[in-house]
């Protein structure tokens, strides 16, 4: 069965975050709020911290965090910034923390995926007994020039004994879904293109892997209602949805 390899210290799971930090990420999450509210970049920092806390929880024996995850993060606009300095054990990430990021510039999404691909290629030999790596991409808008689809497709074709590399997309956009989600806990997920309402949402859907059964089981245990066959794709402008999406990124089975 694919995607059943458990993350252990000897076989840690690799999670790569690609975080859009173009200038639009400095906009408020709730643009209609009367008071200044959290910005999208702050939302990313907060929810990514929460996802890392979840990984720590899943990696803890007694009070000792174990290095069952390796985490890399690339913040991108027209350049790519390596947030943690490569793929770091979760035990290091705890010490580093998730820094606040300053949005600016345009959106070169393809370049971010190329960085992720190079990391996978450079680590290929040490990943062969591990859970299949997962790339979690957050964006709030379409790319500026080059489509990321070809490189994302090639990454998804890269196959490890546990299964092909997984790609998850979080698209923070109010116009992405045909039917907006009000309660992420009762949402069944994106099963077809018909659930979507924008061209870039289609493209991100094509880039997104189907949720593995093992992830679905864990996610269901957390109270979500995602259906089998749904993609690793979380569109919409609901902050709770972003939390759910980042939670999903750490659902690798653990020992």
């Amino acid at each position: 069965m694919p995607y059943e390899t458990v993350a252990t210290q000897a076989t840690p799971a690799l999670i790569i975050y690609l975080l859009d930090m173009s200038v639009s990420m400095s906009d408020a999450v709730d643009e209609n709020a009367p008071e200044p509210s959290e910005t999208k970049s702050e939302l990313v920092t907060r929810t990514l911290t929460r996802a890392i806390r979840e990984m720590v929880r899943r990696s803890t024996r007694g009070t000792q965090p174990l290095a069952r995850y390796r985490v890399a993060a690339f913040a991108y606009n027209d350049e790519v910034h390596d947030v943690f300095g490569g793929a770091r054990p979760i035990t290091d990430v705890i010490q580093i923390g998730v820094p606040a990021m300053a949005p600016a510039g345009t959106t070169d999404t393809a370049k971010a995926f190329e960085h992720a691909e190079q990391l996978l290629l450079s680590m290929h030999g040490e990943l062969k007994n591990c859970p299949a790596p997962l790339i979690c991409h957050f964006t709030d808008g379409s790319y500026t020039d080059t489509s990321p689809l070809p490189v994302a497709e090639r990454i998804r074709q890269m196959t490890f004994p546990d299964g092909p590399v997984l790609i998850e997309n979080i698209f923070f956009d109010s116009g992405a879904l045909a039917q907006p989600v009000t309660d992420p806990y009762s949402w069944g997920g994106v099963l077809t293109r018909d659930d979507l309402a924008s061209t870039y949402a289609y493209e991100l859907y094509e880039m997104s892997s189907v949720i593995p059964d093992s992830y679905l089981r864990m996610f269901t245990e957390r109270g979500y209602a995602m259906r089998p066959g749904a993609r690793l794709f979380f569109p919409g402008n609901n902050a709770e949805m972003v939390e759910a999406a980042f939670t999903m990124s750490g659902m690798t089975p653990v020992a």
């Binding site: 890392i52 806390r53 720590v56 929880r57 803890t60 923390g97």
Partner: peptide
């Protein structure tokens, strides 16, 4: 009791647990 030396994220995780 939680160990005194725990960092922020680690302490948060154990607190939640």
């Amino acid at each position: 009791p939680l160990p005194e030396h725990l960092s922020g994220i680690m302490r948060d995780a154990l607190d939640a647990q």
